[in-house]
Amino acid sequence: MDSLGIDVLFKGTNFVRLLQGLWISVEISMISVAFSIVLGTVVGMFMTVRNRIVKIVLKTYLEIVRIMPQMVLLFIVYFGTTRVFQWDISAEAAAIFVFVFWGTAEMGDLVRGSIKSIPKIQFESAYALGMNKFQTYYYIIFPQTIRRLIPLSINLITRMIKTTSLVMMIGIVEVLKIAQQIVEANRNSSPNAAFGVFAVVFLLYFIVCWPISRFSVYLEKRWA
């Protein structure tokens, strides 16, 4: 068996560059996740209102997000809207916009589902104690919703981190792109680098996502 091609990572600053790329991925996903959680909570609450127009608008939004591949959205925003509307946004901003657009819809749906899963009589029991709507949501409904929500939203967060690999398609130099550059640059000297380098990228994603999903398991147990 030939070498696994991991050695190229020790040439020059290759490994440091790879970590820098990883940081770009994590940065984009963390900013997107933060916005998605806040906006998604608001959208999710609106999804539970009875108003028909609000319902139809949000349902359409959710369906668009579900149907459209994220990459197509990235292309529309970064290559399409920048020309049509003549605005000048960076690839990172476009990526964050698309991820937040996606994350808000999915997060909203999770929030909606969690609120709906609280039995109606829990609301009534709070009302019967003289609580108003705000107090009922604040003291009774949200704390229960959050417990149901955390494992679900952590799943969304790890999916977002993984999906950041798409942003290299609009020119962002993140971890996967750098890995590709390293492999390309060393094609002649280490033809096996593709295996070694991409395997390390795989490991890096794992190192980022695994603690997050362990944390969710921990919370689930604690709150069970």
């Binding site: 029991s125 019967a128 003289g130 108003n132 009774i140 704390p143």
Partner: peptide
């Protein structure tokens, strides 16, 4: 909500708040 404070209600299914312990269930309102 003011009027309801004058009217206590106990439900068939108790409807304690599951995320709070007994004393917090009692003190909240």
């Amino acid at each position: 909500s003011k009027i309801r404070q004058k009217i206590g209600m106990v439900f068939q299914s108790y409807e304690l708040f599951p995320h709070k312990n007994v004393i917090d269930n009692l003190l909240l309102a």
